[in-house]
Simulated scan of single mutants.
Amino acid sequence: MSSVQERRAAVSGTHSGQHPAPKRRSVLRAATVLTVLLLGLVLTSLLVGSGASSPGRAWDYLLGDPQARADAQLRLAVMDVRLPRTLAAVLVGVCLGLAGCLLQAATRNPLAETGLLGVNAGAAFAVVCGLTFFEAESSTALLGWALAGGITASAVVLLLAASGRTAGSPLRLVLVGSALGATFHGLTSYVLLGTRATFDTYRYWTIGSLAGVETGDLLDLLPLVLLGLGTALACSRPLSALGLGDDSARSLGHHPERVRLVVAGAVSLLAGCAVAVAGPIAFLGLLAPYAARAVAGARMTAQLLLSALVAADVLLLADLLARIVIRPWETPVSVLLAFVGGPLLIWIARSRRMSTAGASA
């Protein structure tokens, strides 16, 4: 079946030709495997850390052993360190997976990622301003500045992209986002030149890490994440129509420009929350949609589900490796993702099947 026929089937909910059950079964199997893997990684993440607490003692604590529960150091390791960063890895992975899938579908660009909307650059500039001019040093303060900067930057991109004759077009979104991102990068460098203390703190934030995340911060961001998730699901059918081309989408009753602007808003929320929690994480929002499309084809809802699961699994696995590679110290999770993501991106570029999946986005 051609990609156009598949997308028409995805929009209409039926397939031409053969019965669609095999494809649905593939999606269901993949979702089941990824979910089981995610649960296993969550449990492993609670048991394994860079500290001295053994997995056996952590397992006893989770089972409610009285002696283990009485160990204050063990409780600190499991509940105050490992649990928040485990939840953060799942939350950030889901956000980046959904954001990347939405953006690639909306722009029909298989190389699109959240940095194109200026989210990362806006968050970085806001963090630098908070550190330099407002003495924001706590993790909660940095999270607030990063979230505000990311969302503000993407809002400016949306306002600029919504004006003119080509309002809301994929090319306009990418161009405006790239231009604004470059501007923010320049301003960030200018501010950092005269503030060494700010640079030291900013350097730690910008490498991307899940260490030091607090559960309260994640709960504060949860409403925004749920709003972005709901918007993503609501846009799944219009995005499937956009895959047929703007003219075909209009003939089906959709408004491509409005759909792209709404999608960009959802991407801003999701990516802003992810960057606020973990800093800039490269490759994840770019690679997860490829894996999802390889299984789900043109079905947008299935793509979103699988992208979220793949990204959560990969980020949680990378965070686990970050704790044990150079124990008792930790490796920034973004460094591990870069080592894995670079070669994987080259493999994708050389793989006919994956390139076809990306090109049909």
Rank of each mutant, 00 (worst) to 15 (best):
V263K: 11
R260E: 04
A274L: 10
L269M: 13
P223F: 04
L219M: 14
R250C: 11
A249P: 02
C273S: 14
L239C: 03
L233R: 01
G279R: 05
V275D: 07
L219S: 10
P256F: 03
A249E: 02
A282F: 07
F283D: 14
L227E: 03
G265K: 08
A274W: 12
A276T: 09
I281Q: 03
V213D: 03
I281S: 08
V275T: 12
V263I: 06
T206E: 13
T195F: 14
L226H: 03
F199D: 04
Y202D: 00
L242G: 02
A241F: 03
D246Y: 01
D247A: 11
A278M: 10
D247I: 03
H255S: 14
G253V: 02
H254P: 01
V275P: 10
S236C: 02
V259K: 03
L252S: 05
S268Y: 04
T201W: 05
G216R: 15
L226A: 14
P280K: 05
L218P: 09
Y202L: 08
S240H: 00
L233K: 01
D246Q: 05
H255A: 14
S240M: 02
R250I: 03
L224M: 12
T215E: 13
R258T: 12
V267G: 02
V263C: 06
S209L: 01
E214C: 04
W205P: 11
R196L: 13
Y204E: 12
G279D: 11
C273V: 15
I281P: 07
V267M: 08
R260W: 11
L229F: 13
D246W: 01
L261Q: 09
D217A: 15
A232G: 04
L224K: 02
S248P: 00
V267A: 06
L252I: 05
D246N: 05
R237N: 03
R196C: 02
G265I: 07
H254K: 06
R203P: 00
R203F: 06
D217L: 07
G208M: 08
P256E: 04
G216A: 14
G212C: 11
V225D: 09
A282Q: 12
L219T: 10
L242I: 00
V262R: 13
T231M: 13
V275M: 08
A282S: 15
R250K: 13
R258F: 04
T198R: 07
S236K: 02
R196N: 14
L270M: 09
A232F: 06
F199M: 14
S240V: 01
G208D: 12
D220Q: 13
S240Y: 00
S209G: 10
G216V: 12
A232N: 03
A276H: 06
R237G: 01
S251P: 00
L226D: 09
D200L: 08
C235T: 07
Y204M: 09
L219E: 04
W205V: 04
V262K: 09
L210D: 07
A276Q: 04
C273E: 12
L242K: 11
L227I: 15
E257W: 06
V225F: 06
F199P: 00
L210H: 09
P280L: 09
L222T: 05
T201V: 15
V213K: 07
S251D: 12
A278L: 09
A249T: 05
G265T: 11
A211E: 14
G194R: 13
